[in-house]
């Protein structure tokens, strides 16, 4: 059974969104999904790059108004 979790890093700047994502994903299992809500536009590139290095799957990355929502699936 997989879980879907959220991580709120609004207001945080580089490198905190990536580091908080890493720490959160450590607690998740393969197949779990994580929704990262942030305001740092740099995260739109940084979190997908972080995903690629670890082999996690990027499901969606969208920006609406000043908020960015990135959804990933943990792959181990």
């Amino acid at each position: 059974m997989t879980t879907h979790e959220k991580l709120d890093v609004r207001g945080q700047l580089c490198p905190i969104p990536v580091i908080r994502t890493q720490n959160k994903v450590k607690t998740l299992a393969s197949g779990d999904t994580l929704e990262i809500i942030c305001t740092d536009p740099g995260a739109l590139n940084d979190i997908p790059a972080w995903c690629e290095v670890h082999g996690h799957r990027l499901i969606d990355a969208k920006q609406a108004h000043n908020e960015i929502v990135i959804t990933i699936e943990v792959v181990r």
Binding site: C14, P15, V18, I19, T21, Q22, W50, V53, H54
Partner: peptide, 11 residues
């Protein structure tokens, strides 16, 4: 420190 902490997050 930004590069080192991020590199740490990248494993």
């Amino acid at each position: 420190f930004i590069l080192a902490s991020t590199a740490g997050a990248l494993g």
